[in-house]
């Protein structure tokens, strides 16, 4: 069993690293607000697909990495990501039998919840970002979900 988890951890760490890099990849400023939360989607995928291998620890670590790399208050993304990953883990058996559309809708709800926690912490620590733009990321993220799940599924099966 040890070997089993270890095998599954490699693609997990790799995909998380790539997603972290995508989170700070420079893009034209028009597209900046549309950038989906790649790392969040990746964490959701692993929480749904194999919660044993990483689960909440992955979520918390990834959140901390996002905090450091975005330079916001430590724990903000960690809190949001842990909460939503726990929710995703809770829903995972249902999610697997959902149609693509329902999956996207559920992911949209999770991503919106994630943004909401970020929004709340932003406000509570005195740096509210009230632009409408921040609510676009969940939409793009949800649309991207089938593609991302497909790619990660391939990676997972190998």
């Amino acid at each position: 069993m040890m070997r089993d988890t270890r095998i599954r951890r490699l693609p997990m760490a790799l995909s998380a690293l790539v997603a972290l890099a995508l989170a700070v990849l420079p893009v034209p400023s028009v597209l900046e607000a549309l950038r989906p939360d790649f790392l969040v989607l990746v964490v959701f995928y692993w929480s749904i697909e194999s919660p044993r291998a990483g689960g909440l620890t992955l979520a918390f670590t990834a959140g901390l990495a996002l905090d450091v790399i975005h330079g916001v208050v430590l724990g903000q993304h960690a809190l949001a990501l842990t909460l939503m990953a726990a929710w995703a883990t809770h829903l995972r058996l249902r999610l697997r039998v959902f149609s693509i559309l329902s999956q996207c809708l559920t992911i949209f709800a999770l991503l919106t919840g994630y943004q909401f926690v970020l929004f709340w912490v932003d406000g509570a620590t005195g740096n509210p970002v009230t632009t409408f733009g921040r609510w676009l990321a969940p939409v793009v993220g949800a649309l991207l979900w089938p593609v991302l799940a497909g790619i990660l599924g391939r990676l997972h099966e190998r």
Partner: peptide, 12 residues
């Protein structure tokens, strides 16, 4: 989940 959330809140 509760443990990690408390930890994150404490960090914040």
């Amino acid at each position: 989940c509760v443990l990690y959330c408390l930890l994150a809140l404490a960090l914040i």
